[in-house]
Design a protein around this nucleic acid. Structure first.
Length: 946
RNA sequence: GCAGGGGUGGCAGAGCUUGGCCAAAUGCGACGGGCUUAGGACCCGUUCCCUUAGCGGGUGCGAGAGUUCAAAUCUCUCCCCCUGCACCA
């Protein structure tokens, strides 16, 4: 039995002592592998294993291919989550405390984590420990974290450069905002961790006749403005008349409280909603005069407390009008105006409920019916109808009124909104569109604030985009099929807010009251690894921009930099040397879901900052890890921390299952069964290594050549798979097929210790990237003093690949399989056990015919040739018919009749043993068996005597 | 809604880029047998349907339609699932 714990400790210590993963600058070709650094607000768990272990596999493989490989690691502490987590602890949040306890964190530590910095460092340390347990081939001398002062210096330099290049811009930006705290509110700051969803809306100004103010109505569907028949207000609410620049608005008093964070509002008067009812206002689109009615559904705290009524297309509006009518409210001529039509379905409707309702009705009514609602239905039903109508019409609706007639509704929406805003008939506002109101942790309701001077990185810059686009086309992307995601990410990414008012991190150089947002501060940090170890003794204050200009960009000269920064000349030189050495051939590892943020920003920033030769060369993304088929989540309680997982399963089995149970793109499924399967194979190979001495030596026999052939073919297959990072293929070939082949080799009578040693030695070496500890152990058992990690990757000897021998052995296996089946069926049916089996090899003319047919596909000629060669005409024709039937499947044979006969004869003992009866190998022409004629190439006839 | 990726046998998961050697690798599970005092491990066999002494035939790879001599594989439409959607790591 393999003692995983002991093996892991032994080799991890040996690696550390030998410092084999601390590469210096050398003559060997450099290769640098980096993986997204872990965020430190929790422990490492099995899910984290995937990215880091995949990177480790590549690092180890490249090392064996003769590269000088650097795999560094750092920790992410910037941002909000750590702070909000610490705050939760301070508040005594039972959820967080419970989670932490379940991770095995001692209570006194939890207490100390009320200090966010303490928490960050605690988890950084714990992550480092877990990663060391995982045996990643990381060079820890370069470790860094994202809040250390020297790192901040680099980030400051980076943003100075971005600014110089014009990539930083300022502008208006809506954010979730807590009026009480006076700060922006993201998901981590809200009660229940909900993301405030902000959407753009249009607020249309309806000038009130005879007054100086306009009623402001917020809408998602400005394109329906021609269908407005009236306004709705809440007659019991209080409305405010406010000045806003040159405009004067009438909005509900309550909505003023939230809207004032978006537009300037100075209240000059108040009036009751009921006072508005006697007035009329003007539709700014067409100048028509419309009345104002009380709308039962109008809420004073939503939007502006006033709604433009489009009864033809808004179920609520329709219902409100109908209810007013039936209550006797004086409504004169009010005709709903249809402004959007649905295309006639040319085929059968595709299950759209609404399509079942006859046309010629008002759309609003149609959708009400579609959800089985009427004018007296509860609001939830009307809401349903509203949503359905919004969805369907937005998707398929066609404008049905002049000017925009025939235009898809989506397009008309943008155009009309734009033109209304342009003519000052409307303004743009934002609203939270979460189903429920969003509250800040402090219980204050979150509003939308438009920040005026927000700083952005302008990823929308077309020049920048096209440079990135072009570079991407030259990069390796694994898996290749995620390239399209990168392509669309490049197109999609636009302005990205880059600073926050709070959180851990680097101060923004242009406005030190703000902190650089934490995804933006970690886009080029990998470059820092190349010098981190060299500047440990340097006072961070000395790391002035000119230092980075020289080290990263080669600008200036080391003497001048040394003079102005008072950093040692030698250190500066070495940094530059190290950077140029390492930062060329790089592989970046991260998870699939980061393509649209981190990885894209990584590309953009590299292109913006560095010289072309230092741009990224390769990105590897991987899916996530499922636990026994389920998503890992705290609520399911199925998160296994790395430390626990390793204890339970062993490092190599665990990482092998996570990394190699599926291809990169798919989610990998961590199942205990799979772990056990892996372990069994390890045990088997381990046993073979341990028992090598018991084998004999001697001349090579057919079986030995077979095993060599398999081995060399395997080396080819695995090497190719490794290059493509198809780790699943690597593991099946290396573990499952290896065990299978060895078993067969021994069963077939193989017993040559030299051959087996050669075989398992190569297997052991190829195992190194995916199962490093086991590999070292086996390598050691095989009598080697070196590290398998430091050995070279095996190279296939093409001359040892022998298709003929493999076919001969395949034939033997086929025969055994067929015979077993036949005899099993026979004994089942007739209850008789076979005494003797005749295995009859097909005539040579059959394989000749088959080969000629495979080439020419011409039956007639093949038959003729066969007859000329002495075949019986009737037999030849019968055989030809069989061939013709599956003409497409016929392929050439490598073995002649003699080859078949020889290999079967040579394997008589083996076959007899496998079948448990006597065997006679015969040739078709010589055999007296009646079944002899049934023989065909690679498929001898079998005649069973009982 | 938009963008990206998927839907394959009891399950997991290949194959689909380059259509035919695909009833579909591999692993797990289940069933039967062997080994064993017994269990585990291990070994052998079966595991879509019919049929058969290994043959052969049918149905079949989300649904439907199409291209083709030939489709899990190409095209179109539809349905469903997953991930991301921004200031948040």
């Amino acid at each position: 039995m393999i003692d995983y714990k002991a093996v892991e400790e032994k080799w991890q210590k040996a690696w550390r002592d030998a410092k084999i993963f601390e590469p210096g600058v050398s003559d060997r070709q450099p290769y640098m592998v980096t993986a997204a650094f872990p965020y430190t607000n929790g422990p490492q768990h099995i899910g984290h294993l995937r990215t880091y272990a995949t990177a480790d596999v590549l690092a180890r493989y490249k090392r064996m291919k003769g590269f000088n490989v650097l795999y560094p690691m750092g920790f992410h502490l910037t941002g909000i989550p750590i702070i909000s987590q610490a705050n939760k602890l301070k508040e005594g949040d039972p959820g967080v405390i419970k989670d932490f306890k379940s991770f095995g964190i001692p209570e006194n530590e939890i207490e100390k984590m009320k200090d966010p910095l303490y928490m960050g460092n605690y988890f950084a340390n714990s992550a480092k420990n877990s990663m060391m347990l995982a045996g990643y081939s990381i060079d820890w001398t370069r470790s860094l974290n994202s809040i250390e002062p020297s790192f901040s210096k680099m980030v400051e330099w980076q943003f100075g450069l971005l600014n110089k290049k014009g990539h930083l811009v300022q502008g208006r930006h809506p954010v979730g905002w807590c009026p009480k705290d006076g700060g922006a509110v993201g998901m981590h700051d809200t009660k229940g961790d909900v993301e405030p969803e902000i959407e753009k809306e249009t607020a249309v100004k309806f000038k009130v006749v005879g007054e100086e103010y306009s009623i402001l109505c917020v809408t998602f569907r400005p394109e329906t403005i021609q269908g407005v028949t009236n306004l709705f207000i809440n007659e019991t609410a209080v409305y405010a008349i406010c000045r806003s620049g040159p405009d004067t608005y009438c909005i509900s008093l309550q909505s003023m409280d939230s809207l004032k964070y978006q537009i300037e509002l100075v209240k000059i008067a108040e009036l009751k909603g009921s006072e508005l009812l006697s007035k009329r206002c003007i539709n700014p689109f067409n100048g028509s005069s419309i009345p104002i009615y009380p709308g039962y559904f109008v809420k004073e705290d939503i939007g502006t407390g006033a709604v433009m009524s489009v009864p033809a297309h808004a179920p609520f509006d329709y219902v409100a009008i109908e209810r007013l009518k039936s209550s006797g409210y004086p409504i004169g001529e009010l005709k709903p105006i249809v402004v959007v039509s649905m295309p006639k379905p040319d085929a059968k409707p595709s299950g759209n409920v609404a399509s079942d309702v006859p046309e010629l009705e008002l759309p609003a009514l149609k959708y009400l019916r579609a959800v089985n609602a009427g004018i007296n239905s509860p609001d939830e039903d009307i809401e349903k109808a509203t949503k359905l109508e919004y969805k369907e019409e937005s998707y398929k609706g066609i404008m049905a009124v002049k000017e925009y007639e025939g235009m898809p509704e989506q397009e008309a929406r943008d155009r009309i909104a734009e033109s209304l805003i342009k003519s000052s008939a409307a303004i743009e506002v934002y609203a939270l569109v979460n189903d429920k109101p969003v509250f800040c942790r402090c219980m204050t309701r979150v509003v939308v604030k438009v920040v005026d001077n927000q700083w952005f990185i302008n990823y929308g810059n077309e020049e920048w985009k096209s440079a990135v686009r072009e570079h991407l086309s030259k990069m390796n992307i694994f898996p290749e099929k995620s390239r399209s995601a990168f392509e669309s990410a490049i197109e999609w990414i636009n302005l990205r807010a880059v600073v926050r008012a709070q959180g851990l991190g680097t101060r923004f150089p242009i406005d030190p009251t703000h902190i650089i947002e934490s995804l933006s501060d970690s886009t080029i940090y990998m470059a820092f690894y190349t010098i981190r170890n060299l500047i440990r003794g340097v006072d961070p204050e000395k790391l002035k921009p000119e230092f980075f200009d020289y080290v990263y960009l080669g600008e200036g000269n080391p003497q001048a930099v040394s003079d102005s920064t008072s950093i040692d000349y030698d250190i500066i030189k070495k940094c530059r040397e190290s950077f140029t050495y390492w930062y060329c051939d790089t592989s970046r590892h991260s998870a699939l879901e980061l393509i649209f943020n981190h990885l894209s920003m990584y590309l953009f920033n590299h292109v913006a900052i560095f010289k072309k030769e230092n741009w990224p060369k390769q990105i590897v993304v991987n899916g996530m890890v499922l636990m026994e088929g389920e998503k890992m989540s705290k609520s399911l309680g199925n998160i296994i921390t790395l430390d626990n997982g390793f204890k339970k399963f062993g490092v190599d089995p665990a990482r092998l299952v996570v990394v190699a149970s599926t291809d990169l793109f798919n989610d990998s499924n961590f199942m205990e069964d799979s772990v056990n399967g892996v372990k069994e194979r390890f045990e088997y190979i381990n046993d073979v290594c341990l028992q090598l001495e018991k084998l004999e030596t001697g001349e090579l026999r057919q079986t030995d050549y077979w095993l060599y052939s398999r081995l060399n073919r395997k080396i080819d297959v695995i090497s190719k798979a490794m290059e493509e990072l198809e780790l699943r293929a690597v593991s099946t070939e290396l573990l499952y097929n290896t065990a299978k082949e060895l078993r067969r080799y021994f069963a077939r009578g193989g017993k040559n210790s030299v051959v087996v040693r050669d075989y398992v030695s190569s297997i052991t070496l190829m195992l190194q990237p995916i199962a490093p500890h086991i590999s070292e152990e086996l390598w050691h058992i095989l009598g080697n003093d070196s590290f398998s990690s430091a050995e070279r990757w095996p190279v296939a000897d093409a001359s040892m690949i022998n298709g003929k021998i493999e076919d001969q052995e395949l034939l033997v296996d086929n025969v055994i399989e067929d015979a077993k089946q036949a005899s099993a069926l026979m004994s089942k049916k007739f209850g008789k056990k076979p005494k003797l089996m005749r295995i009859i090899v097909a005539n040579q003319w059959k394989s000749d015919m088959l080969n000629s047919f495979a080439k020419s596909k011409n039956i007639g000629e093949s038959v003729k040739a066969a007859v000329a060669a002495g075949a019986d005409v009737a037999q030849a024709q019968r055989f030809a018919e069989g061939l013709a039937k599956k003409a497409n499947e016929v392929h050439e044979m490598r073995l002649s009749e003699n080859d078949e006969f020889e290999s079967l004869s040579g394997a008589t003992e083996y076959i007899a043993a496998m079948l448990g009866c006597n065997i006679s190998i015969e040739q078709e022409s010589q055999s007296k068996s009646q079944r002899a004629q049934r023989a065909s190439p690679m498929k001898p006839s079998i005649d069973i005597e009982t």
